[in-house]
Amino acid sequence: MSESKAISSSLKARNDLAFLSLLTPVMLFVSGVVLSIEYEGILYWIGQLLLSFFFLQTFILVHECGHLSFFKTRSINTLMGHLFGFLSFIPYYSWQQMHNLHHRWTGWRDKDPTTESTVSPSSSTTKNSIINIAWKLGIPLFYLSYKLSNYWNLFKIKRFLTPKKYQKVKTQIGMYVVLYAVLFYFFWEFIVQIFSLAFVISLLWKELVIMTQHGHIEIPISNNKQVKPITYLEQVKYTRSFYVHEILAKYFLFNFNLHEAHHAHPAIPAYKLSAIHLEKPRKPTFFYWLYRAKRMQGVDYIFKTSKHTGELF
């Protein structure tokens, strides 16, 4: 990101802090695997829960590496981004390209490739009923749709990228598929026993985090008119942060909950975001957002905004 030239040296990425941040996911992974292998009953389930938090963190970390701002060194960001992307089932390069477009077009709901599908609900009563049921029951339908449509769907990706970048996306997606196939062929039973349940649980955590960030916010629609990207600082009003205990935010979410600060300064690494003060109230808390959002129908939360429902968070 070009913004990196403008930020204070005290807020720039540092390799030592970045690697230090990885202690938490390493501990979650090791303890989760040991408990899942060695024990049954409650300890097995604790292991699965720890692994589910690990998978949530891999998603957050591929986001950070995609900005090339988590580590100071570009090559390390790329290398670790592929590792975290692989663990998250998100091809790193397609994530990076589509997510950069998200930051470019935040503030125009139909121009942002990650929100264009939320402009209007389906005309199908059946589909809308499925969305509402999934939302109420905590089935991560939105996150799965978000991930598959934005980072695996080559037909969609082709609309947004140059031929050269699109070819690179195709190549890397193909490499990911081959690697997944090899691992599942040789280690199928181990993967299913130790990781599959934890990964499924992590989908719920990922959906809840993703849905806080831009959902049910009044965001302009360009209606195919010629518009310019909105500046980073102006994007803040089209994003939402949520707040939890500082220890949880720092060590488990890597400040990923501070989404307003992230959009205002996307080149600042996650472990420095808490130093950014936007003179906004520290709300909502996560559980306040969860209570209010889950009271709504899924189609209302996803496809409507506060302008339609009057629901503010």
Rank of each mutant, 00 (worst) to 15 (best):
W205A: 07
A181H: 01
A249Q: 14
V227S: 07
A181M: 11
Y232C: 02
Y176E: 10
L208M: 13
V200K: 10
S241F: 03
N224K: 14
K225C: 02
L253C: 06
I217P: 02
K170W: 02
H216K: 05
K156E: 11
N257C: 13
K206C: 09
F254M: 13
F256W: 12
I201R: 00
K170M: 11
Y166F: 15
F184H: 10
V227L: 08
K250A: 14
G215D: 05
H245S: 12
Y176Q: 04
F160I: 01
I230S: 08
Y176G: 02
H214N: 12
P220C: 05
Y232V: 00
I191L: 15
K156Q: 11
Y243M: 06
K158S: 14
L204A: 11
H216G: 06
Y232T: 09
R240L: 00
V169K: 05
W188M: 04
V200I: 15
S202H: 07
N224W: 03
I173S: 00
I221K: 10
T239N: 14
I221E: 12
K225Q: 15
L248T: 13
S222T: 10
L258A: 05
E189L: 04
L197M: 12
F199N: 09
N224Y: 07
K237W: 02
I173A: 03
L208N: 09
W205R: 10
N255W: 12
N255Q: 15
V200S: 08
V192H: 04
N224M: 08
E218S: 14
I157W: 04
V177E: 07
K164M: 06
V227A: 08
V209S: 09
W205G: 01
K158E: 15
F252R: 06
K170T: 11
L179C: 13
H216R: 06
F199I: 08
I217C: 05
H259C: 08
H216S: 06
A249W: 03
R240F: 00
L233R: 13
A198P: 04
